[in-house]
Deep mutational scan, measured.
Amino acid sequence: DESNKPILLPNESQSFERSVQLLDQIPSYDTHKIAVLYVGEGQSNSELAILSNEHGSYRYTEFLTGLGRLIELKDCQPDKVYLGGLDVCGEDGQFTYCWHDDIMQAVFHIATLMPTKDVDKHRCDKKRHLGNDFVSIVYNDSGEDFKLGTIKGQFNFVHVIVTPLDYECNLVSLQCRKDMEGLVDTSVAKIVSDRNLPFVARQMALHANMASQVHHSRSNPTDIYPSKWIARLRHIKRLRQRICEEAAYSNPSLPLVHPPSHSKAPAQTPAEPTPGYEVGQRKRLISSVEDFTE
């Protein structure tokens, strides 16, 4: 099969070098950035008060330690540790928490760990991170309901609301924008112990962030949302095809390698009803078989 044979790379090609550099910018793992907010007593309706908090309760602090690993920003190499735009020179604080497994990295933009500057009256330095995160974990210690939209931002799609209760338990629920209701189930609340709260809140936030990324990708319907490693695979396959075309153009005697095509017509299947918005969006999480067989 010609399409699977190794090909020689061009010795000097600026377009090839640019493509390789672009490939280096696509990590081999999925990345997520999640905002974390603490809401104190009497702050449920005040964005400024929430963003001005420099610490929270003892249970909130224990919750943070379970979310991930504490890292010092100045020691991080952005090409190895995903920071979601946090500055490593102290502009966004000294520490944050991050978490990773074999296929993804997540960083938490924690408002109480970011510096509260006197010259920044409206807390814009914090909002440029927190307001651009799709998902926020809100530790609501106010005793009042927290409403979506209290923290203004164009991309605040989903809130994971943590409400501490007695007996070391917590109520965990989801809020989302109306255009996200087909992807996020907000109907079920959970009672979770303090011990298990970081794991549950983190998983709910990661799932909500993946759904938000799919939702946000609708602005470019021709580019369905893939995982990062599938995006790398697609980029490599496009690069291979372009090299083959350039080689055939410079030397017409060489065969032009095309991806294999299936001449056999697909079997006719009964027509199915058109899937609704929710089903269609969830299918976009699934990769096409052509990603692996071309």
Score class of each variant (00 low, 15 high):
Arg282His: 12
Ser261Ile: 08
Ser212Met: 14
Asn140Met: 00
Tyr58Trp: 15
Val184Met: 11
Arg282Leu: 06
Gln154Met: 13
Val36Pro: 00
Ala111Thr: 03
Met104Tyr: 05
Lys228Ser: 06
Asn196Phe: 02
Lys228Leu: 05
Glu54Lys: 05
Ser253Thr: 12
Gln94Ile: 10
His55Tyr: 15
Val257Glu: 15
Leu233Trp: 10
Met114Gly: 03
Val39Phe: 01
His262Asp: 15
Asn220Val: 09
Val192Lys: 00
Ser227Ile: 15
Asn132Met: 12
Glu181Cys: 07
Pro115Ser: 05
Thr116Val: 08
Arg234Lys: 07
Leu73Phe: 07
Arg202Ser: 10
Leu64Ser: 01
Pro266Met: 11
Gly56Asn: 01
Glu144Ile: 03
Asn140Pro: 00
Tyr249Glu: 07
Ala211Gly: 02
Gln94Cys: 12
Leu73Tyr: 13
Asp75Phe: 11
Phe157Lys: 12
Ile7Lys: 05
Cys244Phe: 11
Leu22Gln: 15
Asn132Gln: 15
Lys152Ser: 14
Gly85His: 04
Thr269Tyr: 09
Tyr167His: 04
His100Val: 15
Ile110Pro: 04
Ser219Lys: 10
Ile230Lys: 10
Glu278Gln: 11
Thr186Trp: 03
Gly85Glu: 10
Leu48Gly: 09
Asn140Trp: 00
Arg59Ile: 00
Gly153Cys: 10
Glu278Ile: 06
Leu83Trp: 13
Asp223Thr: 10
Ile26Pro: 07
Asp24Gln: 04
Gly90Arg: 11
Val39Trp: 01
Glu62Pro: 00
Ile137Phe: 01
Pro198Trp: 00
Ser193Arg: 01
Gly131Ile: 15
Ile50His: 02
Pro259Thr: 13
Val200Tyr: 04
Asn209Thr: 13
Thr222Ser: 11
Pro164Asn: 01
Ala189Asn: 06
His100Pro: 04
Lys264His: 14
Asp118Gly: 10
Gly90Asp: 09
Arg202Trp: 03
Gly149Lys: 05
Ser19Ala: 15
Gly143Arg: 07
Asn156Thr: 08
Leu254Tyr: 14
Gln203Pro: 01
Ile137Asp: 00
Ser263Ile: 08
Arg128Gln: 11
Tyr60His: 00
Glu54Thr: 09
Ser217Leu: 06
Asp102Gln: 12
Val162Pro: 00
Asp102Trp: 04
Asp194Cys: 00
Glu47Lys: 01
Met180Tyr: 02
Leu113Phe: 14
Tyr58Gln: 06
Asn156His: 07
Asp101Thr: 02
Asp101Lys: 01
Asp30Tyr: 04
Gly68Leu: 04
Lys74Gly: 07
Asn220Ile: 06
Phe199Thr: 03
Tyr277Leu: 11
Asn196Ser: 05
His55Ile: 07
Cys176Leu: 03
Ser28His: 10
Leu165Val: 02
Ser136Arg: 02
Phe146Gly: 00
Ile191Asn: 03
Leu256Val: 11
Pro273Lys: 10
Leu22Ser: 10
Asp102Ile: 04
Ile103Leu: 15
Ile26Val: 09
Gly68Trp: 04
Pro10Met: 13
Phe63Ala: 00
Leu8Glu: 15
Pro270Phe: 08
Cys76Val: 09
Asp118Asn: 11
Thr96Ser: 07
Gln43Met: 02
His216Tyr: 15
Asp92Asn: 09
Gln241Gly: 08
Ala247Gln: 08
Val88Cys: 10
Phe155Ser: 14
Lys127Pro: 04
Arg240Gln: 14
Ser136Lys: 04
Ser13Leu: 10
Thr293Ala: 10
Pro164Lys: 00
Thr274Cys: 13
Ile7Ser: 07
Ile286Val: 10
Pro221Ser: 06
Cys169His: 04
Val81Ile: 12
Leu174His: 01
Gln94Asn: 07
Asn11Tyr: 09
Thr65Arg: 15
Arg59Thr: 00
Ser52His: 04
Asp75Cys: 05
